[in-house]
Structure formats: C-alpha cells, structure tokens
Design a protein around this nucleic acid. Sequence first.
DNA 1: TGTTGCCATGTTATCATACAACTATGGTTG
DNA 2: CAACCATAGTTGTATGATAACATGGCAACA
Lengths: 238, 238
Amino acid sequence: MTLKLDKVNRGPHLSTLVASSISREIAHGRLNPGDQLPTEQALATTFGVSRNVVREAIARLRSEGRIWSQQGRGAFVADVANSSVLTIDHDALQQADAFKSLFELRGALEVKAAALAAERRTDADLEAMKSALTAMNTAPYGSVAWLKADLEFHRAVVAATRNGYMEQFLIFVSERVRESILAAGNQQGSDDMASTTLGEHKRILDAITAGDANAAQEAMQLHLNGAARRVGLHIDDL
Amino acid sequence: MTLKLDKVNRGPHLSTLVASSISREIAHGRLNPGDQLPTEQALATTFGVSRNVVREAIARLRSEGRIWSQQGRGAFVADVANSSVLTIDHDALQQADAFKSLFELRGALEVKAAALAAERRTDADLEAMKSALTAMNTAPYGSVAWLKADLEFHRAVVAATRNGYMEQFLIFVSERVRESILAAGNQQGSDDMASTTLGEHKRILDAITAGDANAAQEAMQLHLNGAARRVGLHIDDL
DNA sequence: TGTTGCCATGTTATCATACAACTATGGTTG
DNA sequence: CAACCATAGTTGTATGATAACATGGCAACA
C-alpha cells in the first residue's frame, strides 16, 4: 500500500484511482483473501484523500465482489472466485490472436443460441427477426442502417432463447467483437457480399422458424464462418 | 423514481439499495440511454438518504458502466453496450429459473471447450487432466478434495482450448454456478454417484486424448446432464 | 447584427466533522 | 468461571462547506 495519489491528476475520479490501486494490491498478491484492509481513515491518509473518496472506492470494490465489509469490524479481501464481475481489456483485443479467441467464444455462444432459439421461439420472436431481415434488405451493405439491422437480428435470435444470461453474455461479447472490427475499419462491401450475407441470415431464420435446432445451429455456424472470412479471419477449426 | 427506502431495513448497505433501484429504473426502460439522472441532491431526498450514500451508489453504477457523469453537468444513463464489465447479481441467482439459465450457459461453453480441447490439447494438458482425475478417484465423493479435483479437471479442459477468453468466461460462470449449488447445500453423495461421475469424466478424457472433438462434446454434454440431475435440475432440452 | 467577455446559477467532486450502530476486548462482579 | 458492562475502535450515515466545471444570460463592443 505504497502509492500516493497526485492531486494534479485530472482525469478519472479519485475514487476510481483508489479502487484500482487496491485492486492491484489484491491482484499482485500483496493483499490475500481473508486479509483485513487498513481502516478507511488509514487508507484516506495513505492516499491523501478524504474518507469519503475511500468509501466510494470501497463501495465499488464491494459491488464487484472483491471485498466485503462489516460495520464495526472492517473490510476484508474476498475469496478470489467471489468476484462477480468480468472485464475485457480493450487494448489487448488489438492483437490478432486475442481477437480470434473472442470471435471463437462469440461463435460458441451464438451457435448454441441459434439452437435454443429454434426450440423456444415465439411468433413475436420470428416477427422481430423477419423485420430485422427486411430492414437489412433495404439498407445498403455496410451502412449504419445495415449494421443496426444486423445487430437487431442477432439480438432477436438470442432473445428467443429465453435465457437472460445467455443474452447478456452474448451481447457483451458481440459488442466487444463489433467494436474491434469497427476499430480496425477494414469494411469494404460488394453487392456480392450483401446477397451472400442475406442468404445466410435467411437460412438461419428458416431453420429457427421450422424449429429445427440442428439446422439452425449449422446455419449459424456457416454464417459465422462467412463473417470471419469477410473480416479477414481465417477459420479452419471453428 | 418513486421508491422510498425504509430506514428500518438493516441488511445491505443503503448505497446498494439505491444503486439497484436506479438499475431497475434503467432495466425497466423508465430511464433510457442518454437520459440525465436527477441531481444527487434530488436523489438523496427522494430516497430519503444522504447525498453521500447516493454518491456511493453512483460510483458503483459508474464502475459497472451503466451511467457516466461529468462534473458540473450531471449523471447520464450510458449506452447499453458501453459497459466493459459484466456482472451477475448473486441474489437473483437464488431463483430457480435464473440458476437453470446460468447452468445452460455454462453448458454451452463447456461443451464447446471440450471439443476445442480435443483438437488442441498438448501432452501437458492431458497430464493435468489425468492427475486431476486420479485425485478425484482417491478423495471421498463430495469432500473438499473431491470438489477441488473436479474443478481442476474442468479447468484443465478449458485451458487446453488455448483460448484465454473462453477460459476466463467459463471459469467465471462455473464459479457462479458452483457458489449457487453450495449455497443451496443439497449435496448428498452415494458411492453410486461417485462411480458414475468418475466414469463420465473418464469418458471425456478419453475422447480428448483421442482427439475426437465430437466424442468429447458428447461426453461433456452427458456429464453435464448427469450433473444437472445430481443437483436436482431437470433438463430436457439442453 | 453578431460576437466577445463576464457573471450568476446549478451541478458534480471533494473535504471535514459529527454522530449512530456495531464489534471486539478487557475488566469487574457475582 | 460465567455473565455483565464499560470503553475504544471501526464502519455506516448525515450534514455543511468549498472547489471545479458547465451553461445560459446579459452587457459591452465591433
């Protein structure tokens, strides 16, 4: 617990800095599960901030499950596995293999989601997918409207799984993938690609409409392989 | 923004209650992305707490990416996708359908991980799985050592995927599932269960050793179905 | 007219202090 | 030895004040 914050720092909130400092202490093993943190007052003086700021930092760490605290006793480092938050480092995603890994993870979720959707979809779900597809049909390939409609379609599919966690995770991962693709910015559309992509989507929708889980799964896999090719990723083993 | 907190409530911190109240407003669409939140003072009076508590709640929501705030302007609801962290509400997991959903999600990841592991495993991976299995063999069913070995096996499998994100996600989800099971506490072991479970694991290991992705996938699916039954979950459609 | 500069107001960020509620500890008493 | 109690230390909450920042209005000026 050696860090001293510099008041000049105008950027993130002080509580954020304090929180990440403590997080680092935990991550680096200088604070181990079960250890008691210094008192709020002590932390305040070490970091050179008010007790209030320390409390905001602790509130944050507590919500992340990294620490727990009890009135009258103190704050303690929680068990490692207890962390109820998951983060993805945006910078690390610039590496090609990291991106490929995330794409693969997304694929696993998306394929399973398609299969589940085929089994559980309601008419409203199908309607949502269909309207997303028609929107994609009228929008020029690669345009904002097209991307939005594409997103809508995939969301409609995962929504049809009736699994909130699946939805939450998949949307989270998809957004990171999409971000990364947009950041790379190698989007070049041909009409050929447009019709191919649309066909892939159509096939997914048909399978889900038919309630054929296997077919939906395969169609989604095919679509993802196509998508991977389109963003310049070579997938041999997905 | 109608809720009024009751002072009598002695349980979670007030800041937690305020945070989840605001979260609910966002989730239910009563607060939409881009909307400005009431001022801290206003929130404090509506909830009947001090401004300090409100700030702790906001610090928490900010760390979760749900809102962002700027000095001199106010706090605003962030875009849904902007969150770079993923959280799982521990309390919500007590509901049976929530648990089932999470179990299903875990299954999707685990099955895919088994398939990938079969394709990419090294000898060291196989060694790790094997030693975990022998450890499980010598430990009494349901004991701490047994649970630890079980965990080790599954970690070895996902480690063999060579996909850091897959590993991170799966471990995260698995921990939540495991927690939930332990919290429920309906663990009752018979020798029968022990041998069955061991057999399932063995079959997974064999398939991965043989490099047969399909077999590994199926074996893992079978194992998960068995595990679901053992914790009293009826799975018809996984 | 349009634009620049200043000021008043409202908001968040932080600080400081005080008190309430709770815990742990040690001593006292029966 | 057990039960009780007093006390100090810690977290939880409340309150008021100040600094930093954003915004809009208004006056002065070109």
